[in-house]
Computed example of a mutant assay.
Amino acid sequence: MFHSRLHSLSCFLISLLLSASLFTSLSILADPAMAQDKRQNAPGEFDFYVLSLSWSPSFCEEAAERGGRSQIQCSGRPYAFVVHGLWPQYENGFPEYCQRPAPRLNRNIVSSMLDLMPAPGLIFNEWDKHGTCSGLSERNYFEAIRKARATVKIPAEFLDLSQARTVAPADVEEAFIKANPGLSSAAVSVTCNRTRLSEVRICMSKDLQFRACEELDRRACRRDQVTMPPIRGG
């Protein structure tokens, strides 16, 4: 009797372990962020870029609400969409911090990028976290950012937004598609926080052509409407 119960308990425990293992495996398959690419963090080994354009007025309002120190880009100059970064991506997941420590970034390069990325801290961080994964030199990486940004035309209705505007994320996406021939809904997504539009993210091939990317849509804003705060200064 004792041996029979011990055998039953052993079988039950083994069943639990197998179930837990299966659940973990299924969870990893269901969450691409948990499934590491075999090339993880190898410089230059990635599939495509994401050009992230941040709506600066939203960033500044959020910074003010947090009560942090004043951000350089929030000093009153009329910034609209600014470049957050150009991010190497895998089809599932993304590399980051591919060289530790990162090669030292020349301050002349930082100064040259302030028209697109109006905060030195942002530029340094983007190089450390994402630029080192591009496989490009510092100068070539930031030249790629400039070329990527020049490829994208900002819709006219967002160039001089003098009053707060309530928008549907789908309409913002559609405006970018209309303004940029060759850009499809599979290559662009809009992100948001609880109330405000945050970013427009556009997928590009390594040679900076628009391309589809399924994973981007999984991180998109799911709200029906969000606010775009007005551009400051100007």
Rank of each mutant, 00 (worst) to 15 (best):
V167K: 00
A64M: 05
G67I: 04
L26R: 03
N41H: 05
D47P: 01
S25F: 12
R107K: 09
E96W: 04
A30G: 11
M117T: 08
A187N: 00
L9V: 15
F46W: 06
Q73E: 15
S75E: 09
A35C: 07
I154G: 03
E91H: 09
M1R: 09
E62V: 11
R69K: 14
N106D: 15
L183Q: 04
P32A: 11
I231G: 00
L161D: 01
H130S: 11
R107T: 14
K38P: 06
V190S: 00
L26Q: 08
E215M: 04
Q225G: 02
I123R: 00
D224C: 04
S134L: 08
D31Q: 06
P88Q: 08
D47A: 06
A187V: 09
D31R: 01
P181V: 15
S70H: 01
G234R: 03
F142S: 00
A33L: 03
S198R: 07
Q99D: 13
F210G: 02
M228I: 12
A164I: 08
V190A: 02
Q225V: 07
P78Y: 08
V110F: 07
L116H: 03
I123V: 15
R5I: 13
R66D: 12
G121H: 05
V190Y: 00
R5V: 14
V226P: 00
E143G: 07
P169R: 00
L6T: 05
R196W: 05
C203Q: 05
M228L: 15
T166C: 02
P181Y: 11
Y90H: 04
N106I: 14
I123G: 03
F158Y: 04
I72M: 12
Y90S: 05
E61L: 07
A102Y: 01
N108T: 15
A175K: 02
Y141D: 14
L216T: 12
L116F: 13
G135A: 13
C213W: 02
